[in-house]
């Protein structure tokens, strides 16, 4: 799928950013292919917003380098290629909605007024309303209209759906997917709502403690993991069978007699097909152990819960 002649949408090498002695990001290597829908996940303070702001050119790296579609953030080429929606949706509160869109038109050569206006109209927002008088959800809608109207190749969206109602979330998500399907627009969106990601994103970038913990194509990552469920071995403290290779365990929990563990599937074993026992996963062939492909939510939760700072993984 990956074409080496096409510049990555977002590429970073040993990227770091320090704020008054605290590293928000450190030693991050990122390589997001163009035209993908990437979920940027991680706990609060993991560095998600910092990464997006670095990509948008609002922050400068302390160490390392970052490129968007091959250009340094802040250059004209990079600014035209990207649209950034900040978490706090900064807009001029005294401007009317029409003024805000006019500003977008003045500042962007490729501005799509029809798209921006249709997004605002779909929310029944009067063009004459002042931005300061709008609800949080409607302000988000205007900010999204500004970002999408730019017709950028890469949308950097920091919690874009957080304050939208369920109907608006569905509509806006559909609109974003349409942009991806029709124009090949790449999307990097941060979110805490993992359950919504399963059908939306095809790529994942998981940050924790300022470092990349998991990165890759969602399908490949799911195939590379197995969710094991079985009866706890009473002799072992973690409940997993004695012979089991502990180094493959991402996270395991014991509830009563049951153990649930998310483990890395050894390459080429094809264990994630639901075959019980899972000899291929390193566990003894035991019908009391069930191996299945995890949901994306289960996969991300396990990696978010994983205690030790284990090595970075890349599926591709």
């Amino acid at each position: 799928m990956k074409d080496p002649t096409v510049a990555a949408a977002l590429q970073a090498a040993r990227l770091g950013r320090e704020f008054r002695g605290r590293w928000a990001l450190r030693g991050c290597d990122v390589d997001l292919p163009a035209g993908r829908v990437t979920a940027l996940v991680g706990p609060n303070g993991a560095g998600k917003s910092t990464l997006l702001q670095l990509a948008a050119g609002l922050l400068r790296p302390t160490t390392g380098r970052i490129r968007v579609h091959g250009h340094a953030p802040g250059t004209r080429e990079a600014r035209e290629a990207t649209a950034f929606l900040a978490q706090e949706k900064p807009l001029h509160l005294r401007f009317t909605v029409a003024d805000t869109l006019r500003l977008g038109r003045k500042l962007n050569r490729r501005w799509d007024q029809a798209l921006a206006e249709s997004l605002v109209r779909a929310g029944n927002i009067p063009l004459t309303a002042r931005v300061g008088s709008l609800s949080g959800g409607n302000r988000t809608r205007v900010a999204l209209a500004l970002a999408l109207g730019k017709r950028a190749e890469l949308l950097l969206l920091d919690e874009p759906l957080a304050d939208l109602d369920p109907v608006a979330r569905h509509e806006i998500t559909g609109l974003l997917m349409y942009q991806a399907a029709e124009h090949g627009v790449g999307i990097v969106m941060s979110t805490h709502v993992l359950a919504e990601l399963e059908d939306i994103c095809d790529h994942v970038l998981l940050l924790k403690d300022g470092a990349v913990r998991l990165s890759g194509d969602t399908g490949e990552l799911l195939d590379a993991h197995t969710l094991l469920t079985g009866r706890a071995d009473p002799i072992e403290t973690d409940g997993l069978p004695h012979a089991f290779d502990r180094s493959t365990v991402v996270h395991a929990t014991t509830t009563g007699r049951q153990v649930t563990a998310l483990v890395r599937t050894p390459p080429g074993s094809g264990a994630a097909t639901g075959s019980p026992g899972g000899a291929a996963t390193g566990a003894p062939a035991d019908p009391r152990w069930i191996g299945e492909t995890p949901s994306l939510e289960a996969l991300l939760l396990a990696h978010l819960r994983a205690p030790r700072p284990d090595r970075t993984e890349a599926a591709a």
């Binding site: 559909g174 997917m177 349409y178 399907a181 059908d199 939306i200 095809d202």
Partner: peptide, 14 residues
């Protein structure tokens, strides 16, 4: 694909 994704809000690759 674009009609389906606009209506269902799923990834076009799906």
């Amino acid at each position: 694909a674009r009609e389906v994704v606009a209506a269902t809000a799923i990834n076009p690759n799906t």
